[in-house]
């Protein structure tokens, strides 16, 4: 059972105020418990939590490079297995490390089926280097490398469906979650680490600095993403969708308006055509995962 009172992530780290990933670090470790080894990729969380010698991690933790956490974790798992040790191996990596540069190592590790859990804290861009777009950046979000401008509406491609890609690798458990629902995150982490084989958890972790909202609203923004259907919390076990959080869906406008990264869609005039495309993404999500609560039934 998850022990909510377990504190394995120390204060004094250098994350921005209201940081979604910092909240998530706490939730994850409450879900794993102490018998764990954490593998980090280069990124915001790594940098804000481990400037030598001030580590915020009270569990064994290792960082090697940006792209190789899944391979490092594979080696750790092999060593543990050889020596009959019990620690769980958990990667905690950003979306750039996961969706983009780390794909090679992740694909290898999931194909080999190591007993590891890979958790992506998804703040939908390269935040550590200054908010550049990644394969996880949503359609039309303005970032420093996909800026909105006279000839651009921001990021031109939709978010990559990584959970499905890892599902196709034969992952035994694939789930999405959001920092807006801490208990759900903890339970899914607990389930992931206790499911044999390679498991994947992708957690929506709003970034006030990168998305452009007040740091007090991190959880509120996370909830809005779910309520409009642009983020869906679901679980897949052995390839089958077993659970998806149902919502009474609201239009995407409110979620978009709350963040500076989508400001160009509303100012000076609402770009209805683009907002409609984003609404269509939410509608497709709703249909695919069956999240709409139908009031007529």
């Amino acid at each position: 059972m998850v022990d909510k009172s377990l504190e394995l992530f120390d204060c004094g780290h250098r994350a921005c105020g209201g940081c979604g990933p910092a909240m998530l670090a706490r939730f994850i470790l409450k879900g794993t418990g102490e018998d764990v080894i954490v593998v980090a990729s280069t990124g915001c969380m790594e940098v804000f939590s481990t400037p030598y010698p001030e580590t915020a991690w009270k569990v064994p933790w290792i960082h090697s490079l940006f792209e190789n956490a899944a391979a490092v974790a594979s080696g750790i798992e092999a060593s543990l297995k050889h020596n009959n040790r019990t620690e769980k191996v958990v990667c905690i990596c950003g979306d750039g490390a996961t969706f983009d540069i780390g794909m090679l190592c992740i694909s290898g590790a999931f194909e080999r089926g190591h007993d590891i859990t890979y958790i992506c804290y998804d703040n939908e861009a390269y935040m550590n280097t200054g908010i550049q777009r990644s394969g996880a950046t949503p359609y039309d979000a303005s970032t420093t490398t996909s800026p909105a401008g006279r000839m651009s509406m921001g990021n031109s491609r939709p978010k990559k469906d990584l959970p499905q890609i890892l599902n196709a690798h034969g992952a035994t458990y694939v789930a999405t979650a959001s920092v807006a629902y801490p208990m759900d995150v903890m339970k899914k982490v607990e389930k992931a680490v206790n499911t044999p084989g390679a498991t994947y958890l992708q957690v929506h972790a709003p970034c006030s600095t990168g998305w452009g909202f007040d740091g007090s609203k991190t959880i509120e923004i996370g909830k809005q993403a779910i309520e409009c259907g642009l983020w869906v919390n679901y679980e897949m076990e052995n390839g089958e969708l077993t659970k998806a959080k149902k919502v009474r869906r609201v239009p995407v406008d409110g979620y978009l308006k709350a963040q500076k990264r989508f400001r160009h869609l509303f100012k000076p005039q609402p770009v209805t055509e683009e907002i409609a495309k984003i609404q269509a993404i939410a509608d497709a999500n709703a249909a695919k995962y069956g999240i709409d609560i139908n009031l007529n039934k």
């Binding site: 504190e7 992530f9 120390d10 204060c11 004094g12 780290h13 994350a15 921005c16 105020g17 209201g18 940081c19 979604g20 910092a22 909240m23 706490r26 007040d214 740091g215 007090s216 609203k217 991190t218 959880i219 509120e220």
Partner: peptide, 28 residues
Amino acid sequence: PETSVSEKDGNILFDLDFCKGCGVCARE
């Protein structure tokens, strides 16, 4: 996010050595 809120003897305590003042506690 700072692990700086705790409860003792029925009181909520903020560890002002670490609280960054983000206000997420107030909002939620």
